[in-house]
C-alpha cells in the first residue's frame, strides 16, 4: 500500500531476562498465558501487523494489560521490539542511531499522555512550546506558534498560568496544544482522554475531530472505551493478550465480529446510534424516484426516525448527491441485533 505512513510488520515484544530465547516459542504459537506460566516471561505483543494510513485516525483498543501502551511506544521507540519491523514514513526506525532517533522524535512525531505529563514548573505557554524549544527554534517563533495552538484548543488567556492551576480537561488541552505545536505529521495519543470525566471527554473528542478535519494528521489513538473508539476511528485495531483479534473499518467490525470475544465486546453498544446507513444498505440502485432520500452518513437512529415506525419502508441512500444504494427498514431492524444472537436465538437471554 502506498499511502501507508507507518507499517508495523511481524512485531513481537517479550518482557523478561531471556526474551530472545523466548521469541521462537512465541513464533511457533505459544500464547501469553502459557508463556507466563511456563517460563515467567510476559508476552507483550505477538505477531502484530498494522498499516497506518496517512491522514487517518487509527484507534487501538483493548482491555487493560492487552499491550496497547507497549504497542504505541514501539512507534517512537520508547520501547525496542524483540523482533519485527517498524517503518515510519519510509525509514526503518530500528536502524536509526541515537541522534537520528532524537531527530525523528523531534520532527516526525508527537505524543499526548493519559496523565498529561506537563512540566509542573513551567507555564502553559512554555509547556505548549516545549517540542520547539527542545529542537532549539527561535524563542519568538516558539511563543507565536504556542500561542496560536493554545488558542485553537480554547486556552487563550491561560498562557501565563501553571499546569496545577488548570483543571484536568484544561491540562489535557495543553497536552494537545503541545503535540500540535511540534507540527509533526504523526500524533500518538495513549489513553489521552481516559483520565477525564465523560462530558469533558466527549468535548475533547469533538475538538480532536474538528482539528483533524483541518489538519489531516496521522493519529494513533489508544483507548479502552468502545464508544470513544467508534466515534473517532477510521481504522480500528482490537488487541487482546498482546495479539490482534480483528482490525478494519469500525462499522465492518460491528457487523462482522470475527470471534466471540469481539461479539462480547460490541454487544453492549447502542447499535442504532453507531451504525451508519451506508454500512447496512444494499448496493442495488433502484430506478424508481418516489423513494425518500437518506444520507449514507446518517446513523440508523435517523433512519428509524424517518420511517415513522413503518417496517416495510425503503429509502434511497445518497452520498454527495449521488445515489449509492437502497436501505430496507427490515435490514435496519436485522442490523440492530448482534449477529451471534441472530444465528442462534436460543442464546439470547
Amino acid at each position: 500500500m502506498t499511502d501507508s505512513f507507518i507499517s508495523i510488520r511481524n512485531l513481537y515484544k517479550i518482557f523478561g531476562p531471556n526474551s530472545s530465547a523466548m521469541i521462537s516459542r512465541a513464533k511457533s504459537g505459544m500464547h501469553k498465558a502459557d508463556m507466563l506460566k511456563e517460563f515467567g516471561h510476559v508476552l507483550g505483543l505477538r505477531n502484530i501487523n498494522i498499516e497506518i494510513k496517512k491522514g487517518e485516525i487509527t484507534v487501538i483498543m483493548g482491555l487493560s494489560g492487552s499491550g496497547k501502551s507497549t504497542l504505541i511506544r514501539h512507534l517512537n521507540r520508547l520501547i525496542d521490539p524483540t523482533s519485527g519491523e517498524v517503518i515510519v514514513n519510509g525509514t526503518d526506525i530500528l536502524k536509526l542511531d541515537r541522534l537520528q532517533l532524537l531527530q525523528l522524535r523531534r520532527t516526525q512525531m508527537s505524543m499526548v499522555f493519559q496523565k498529561f505529563a506537563l512540566l509542573p514548573h513551567e507555564t502553559v505557554l512554555t509547556n505548549a512550546g516545549m517540542p520547539c524549544s527542545v529542537r532549539g527554534d527561535d524563542r519568538r517563533v516558539i511563543d507565536k506558534s504556542a500561542r496560536e495552538w493554545l488558542h485553537r484548543v480554547g486556552l487563550s488567556g491561560a498562557e501565563a498560568l501553571y499546569p496545577h492551576q488548570l483543571s484536568g480537561g484544561m491540562q489535557q488541552r495543553v497536552g494537545l496544544a503541545r503535540a500540535l505545536t511540534s507540527n509533526s505529521e504523526l500524533m500518538l495519543m495513549d489513553e489521552a482522554y481516559s483520565a477525564l470525566d465523560p462530558l469533558i471527554r466527549s468535548s475533547m473528542q469533538d475538538l480532536l475531530l474538528e482539528l483533524q478535519e483541518d489538519l489531516q494528521k496521522t493519529i494513533v489513538f489508544i483507548t479502552h472505551d468502545l464508544d470513544e473508539a467508534l466515534k473517532i476511528a477510521d481504522h480500528l485495531v482490537i488487541l487482546k493478550d498482546g495479539e490482534i483479534v480483528q482490525q478494519g473499518e469500525p462499522q465492518h467490525i460491528l457487523l462482522n465480529p470475527a470471534d466471540p470475544y469481539i461479539e462480547d465486546f460490541v454487544s453492549d453498544i447502542n447499535r442504532a446510534r453507531v451504525l451508519r446507513v451506508r454500512s447496512v444498505m444494499t448496493e442495488t440502485i433502484s430506478g424508481s424516484t418516489d423513494l425518500e432520500l437518506l444520507d449514507g452518513d446518517e446513523n440508523l437512529e435517523a433512519a428509524i426516525l424517518r420511517s415513522k415506525g413503518e417496517a416495510g419502508k425503503t429509502f434511497a441512500v445518497h452520498t454527495a448527491g449521488q445515489q449509492v444504494g437502497t436501505l430496507k427498514m427490515t435490514d435496519v431492524l436485522k442490523a440492530l441485533v448482534p449477529a451471534a444472537r441472530r444465528s442462534n436465538p436460543s442464546n439470547a437471554e
Partner: peptide, 14 residues
C-alpha cells in the same frame, strides 16, 4: 515522575 520523563523522551530531549 516517570510520565514526565517519558514525555521528555517522546519529544526528543537529550
Amino acid at each position: 515522575d516517570a510520565d514526565v520523563l517519558e514525555a521528555a523522551d517522546a519529544f526528543g530531549m537529550t
